[in-house]
């Protein structure tokens, strides 16, 4: 057989592509359940991290079930719309953030542990420089003070934008206020060079990560503002 002819070359390429595609789809389908589970466990670890509870992939499930006593979704008016635990956990912010504010399902996770007390955990999601950034913010029961925060990123530049995922960046968020004295929603403002230490409404930008920092600021403002009514009512 002439392996140099055009017909042969075209046939060879076509059959190869179909075969490879079949093998890859088969592998992807077989491994999907395990991968989904890994991602769920990671989300549970992230939620726990927002209240400064360290967990390993092995014990995340157990700790989550122990300390997250309640999870529900609210609407923009602050009314609870669903108390289904699994449905709340499965809410995809990527889809929700595209909806109109009135139609959004806003998940809230209630954490309770002796010695720490009760906290509300709110998921957030936004855009960084190269891709999505996301996180969880835990609030004190007063609904205006941040207790802890954790941020993740898909592909921010290591050493620059990706610094938002480091504990050193996340720690100072504890104690910040998202409402001012008059009760107006202010979110947190990005400040280059840090601002005053312990300033309640400002956070320090990442040097060299301006776009990521701005994305983080917008993410906090957009996501937390939709909870405004709920947070006010919980005071």
């Amino acid at each position: 057989m002439n392996t140099q002819s055009n017909t042969y070359t075209f046939l060879y390429a076509s059959i190869m592509v179909v075969l490879v595609a079949a093998v890859l789809s088969f592998a992807a389908l077989q491994l999907k359940p395990r991968q989904t589970r890994n991602i769920e466990i990671e989300k549970k670890q992230d939620i726990l991290k927002a209240v400064n509870i360290a967990s390993t992939p092995e014990n995340a499930e157990e700790l989550y079930n122990q300390f997250i006593v309640q999870s529900f979704t609210v609407n923009a008016n602050g009314d609870i719309t669903s108390e289904d635990k699994n449905a709340t956990f499965a809410v995809d912010l990527k889809i929700e953030n595209k909806k109109k504010l009135e139609e959004r399902k806003l998940p809230v996770f209630i954490f309770k542990k002796e010695g720490i007390g009760e906290k509300m955990i709110i998921p957030i999601r936004g855009r960084g420089m190269w891709g999505p950034i996301w996180g969880f913010v835990s609030m004190e029961p007063d609904g205006k003070t941040i207790y802890g925060a954790t941020f993740g990123n898909k592909g921010e530049t290591p050493g620059l934008g990706a610094e938002i995922s480091k504990p050193e960046f996340q720690k100072p968020f504890s104690g910040k206020q998202i409402f001012d004295e008059t009760g107006k929603f202010t979110s947190l403002a990005l400040v280059k060079g840090g601002g005053a230490v312990g300033h309640p409404h400002e956070f320090d930008a990442v040097s060299g990560g301006t776009v990521t920092s701005k994305g983080l600021e917008a993410m906090l403002r957009e996501n937390l503002s939709s909870y405004e009514m709920y947070l006010k009512s919980s005071k």
């Binding site: 070359t9 060879y12 390429a13 490879v20 890859l24 592998a27």
Partner: peptide
């Protein structure tokens, strides 16, 4: 069996497919 004109492409497809499998695993 590999047609020599597209041998690099064939190699790339094989390598890419294997790498995707490794990544998924």
């Amino acid at each position: 069996t590999i047609p020599s004109r597209i041998r690099i492409i064939v190699q790339l497809v094989v390598v890419a497919a294997l790498v995707i499998v490794v990544d998924q695993v």
